[in-house]
Structure formats: structure tokens, C-alpha cells
Design a binder for these strands. Sequence first.
RNA 1: GUGGGCGUAGCUCAGCUGGUAGAGCUCUCGGUUGUGGUCCGAGUGGUCGCGGGUUCAAGCCCCGUCGCUCACCCCA
Length: 419
Amino acid sequence: MKIQSIRGVKDILPDEIWKWQYIESIVHNIFPRYGFREIRLPIFENTRLFTRSIGEATDIVEKEMYTFQDRGGDSITLRPEGTASVVRAYVEHKMYNPPSILKMFYIGPMFRYERPQAGRLRQFNQIGVEAMGSPSPIVDVEVMTMLMEFFKQLGLTDTQLQINSLGSQECRPHYREILITEIEKHLDQLCSNCTNRYQRNPLRILDCKQCGKIAEGLPKLIDHLDPASAEHFSEVQSLLDSAGTPYSVNPNLVRGLDYYNRTAFEVTSQNLGAQNAICGGGRYDTLVEELDGPSTPCFGFALGLERLVSLVPFDNAKTLQKNPDIFIVCLGDEAKTAAFQIAHELRLKGIRIERDYDAGSMKSQMRKANKTQCRFTLILGENEICSGKYLLKNMETGEQIECPAQELATEIAKFSESS
RNA sequence: GUGGGCGUAGCUCAGCUGGUAGAGCUCUCGGUUGUGGUCCGAGUGGUCGCGGGUUCAAGCCCCGUCGCUCACCCCA
């Protein structure tokens, strides 16, 4: 049987890689303005890193991880998300010393064993951002503002920022009790999923699509925040207002990972299908400590690159396709040899050269040239070899000039400017 | 893990109540000496996902299987 790729993974082919490179170039342009530097991390880690950080009872840990034993018998997991690795590296390299805020971003593949669907893959790429070392709401807002500015640069027009507060370790248990008692009054109206999980993960019911009606009537966490979290949340809102960043408060917004507290947010788009979140994140003030580092409040997000690629209007970025500058057409053995030499020299001068290695008829070579969408064709025939003057043709205008061999590079530059 | 839809040429898809396959695009080559795109002409290309079954006869009907896709759960 023919071998094909694993279910839920995708090849990114040369014809569309420029889209990814374009997005990455915007990342490298915008993120450093806010003080973020790139970090590159391994794509597999000790399994315990994820079970401890993400939470034993989450779906990711319970059924979605790619976990295997390596030859030494250690349990290894392909990373299902990036934050755990960043925190591990932060603690491992004692990056908290000297103590100051540290801002990093990463780009790379994540792995989750799920049934693929629109906008969901088993190997997918994320851009993640982590700002580590400050509890200030200013950090929350700077990061969210950076994100929305990033989307704006990419030309996205239909993104909605939703925010919520998940409170703290102190107020959440209280609220949880209130919520469970309230839910128990409506047990018969809940979907089967929710009746099963209301004890274990009652917050999820707020977010359930089927139980939306009941969720509306349930008590909201933002009405039961501890004073410090309430203060934090209201500062986040007023800072967003003054930054002019549009948002809406969604009291039912819950995050799937255990480590979040206080600010949680999500960016959604209507043009994505059922999986409508393009980005999710929030504050995680205790994770670093839980992974044996010093108390380090953090804020971060992860955004799905495949989903982003499907949303960006790339009309203005097409010039990033690296078509050849010149396609060399040659006729006859002598010209074929000469073309080899000329291609070599022009490439050393930084010009993108393509040619036809199998030199068929002129017509067929010109057709190939046209297909590469090169800007120029350099025509080398017996006449040109004899005279030492080559023909340079502008493929857009059809205009053609004669050009002495020695002056090829400068002529090309000149011709290139004038057209 | 559960459910719906779909597997026919490189791509997008037709194919009637069963009679051993078609279109458009692409590709290749031509349309008098060495010039692409547009136009015109010709040609290449398919074990109809795979395996069984029913039938004189299966792309079409039945069973199984694999794959893709969308949705649920959950999430980027």
C-alpha cells in the first residue's frame, strides 16, 4: 500500500509557504516593539511537565497527548501546548535572575491526538507569547493590544476580543460551591455531558453550547471575585478603553487549562467554522511556582497559525513569492554551456536565476519561462554567442534589448528599474 | 470515541431505471527559419479507494474495509 501522511497532519507546499513567511515577518516586526524576543524550544518533553502544568483532569492530559516511552524507558510527550515548556526553560535556566520582566515568544508545532476537522489538526502550529514577572494589569493590556495590532497589520477585520476574569485560588472554591448548588437545581435540564461533569468541572457548563440557556441564569464568577481580582479586572477594562482596543466581556468564557487565573481572553472570528477561536490566553500567576520556580506572575497567549493563515487576506503580500528574476533560454550546445557559466556568475551577484536544463525548442523554453513568472528572459542562441551580445526580454512588456556579456548584471539592473 | 457527507484523469467534477467511462482546466506537441501569456488544432492521461457478494453484465445495487471531510466532546 502506498504510504501517505499521518491522519491530521498537513504538508505546507512551496506554493503557499510564502504566506507563512509573510505572517512570520509581521511577527518579527511587531513583537519586538513590545519587548518580546524569540525562544526556540524542544517539541518533546518529560510527560510529567504537562500532567503537572495543564492539569490531570483536563481533556488534553486525559486523552489527547502523544505519549510514548523512549529507549531508555522514560515517558516522553510531544508538546500539546507551549507555555509549559517556556516555564520549564525559565526555571531551568534561572531566567528570573536578575529579577525583571522577561518577554518571549515562540513559533512551532504542537501535537494533540484528536479527530481532525475544519481548523483542527493533530499537528498544528502556534505562535505563543509569554510575559513573565509582573502581576500588573498593564501587562495584560499591552499583550492583548499587541495581539490586536498584529491582527490589524495582517488585514483581519472580523476578529472579536472577549475577556473575562477567572478570579483567584481564594475566591474560586467559594464560587464553585455556589455554582454547583445552583446547577443541581437544574440537573434535569442539562445535556448528558454536563450532568456528567458538573461536579468535576462546573465552570465548563457556562461555556457549553447546548446548555446556553441555563448557563445564562447561573451565577457569574465576575460577581464573586475577591477584591484584588475585581480591582485587577476593572483596571484591565479601563486600560483597554484608553488604548482604544475594542473588546467585550464574556462572563461565560472559561479556559481549558488549569493554570489560568484572573484575566482570561479569547479572540474569535466568524469565518472559521465551528472552531472559531483563533487565539486564547490569559494570566497564570502560580504556574512557575508549581513547577518549582520562584513566585512569578505571568501573562500569555497562544494563537493558531493554520486558522490565522485561513483568515488573512494575502492580496498585498504576493510579491513575497520568490519567482526568478531571470529565466535563461538557450539554443545549441555552445549556448547551453555558456548558460551554465552565466547562471553561476549572476547568482553570485544575488540574482535569482532559473533555466531549462533539457533545452527543448525555443517555444517550449519560452513557455517554461512564462510559467515560472520570471521578470526577464535571457536568450542565448548561436547568434548571441558569436556576437557576444545577449538578448534580454522583459516578460511583462515584451520589450527586448541587446546586452554585451560583460555588462549583463548592470544592464539587468538598469532595465529592471526602467520597466 | 460517536454521528452525517464523500472517494471516478494531476485538479474541479459529470456519469440516467445496472450495458466494460466523459467534460472543463492542467500537461505535451504543433499553428513554416529563434520568442511566452491570448487564440486555434492535435495528443497524453483512469485496476471508477480497496476486498468480497448479487447479476449474463457493476462506476452505479449489497456487505465489509481503508481514507478524506464536516460536526459532537474539547480546543488553537
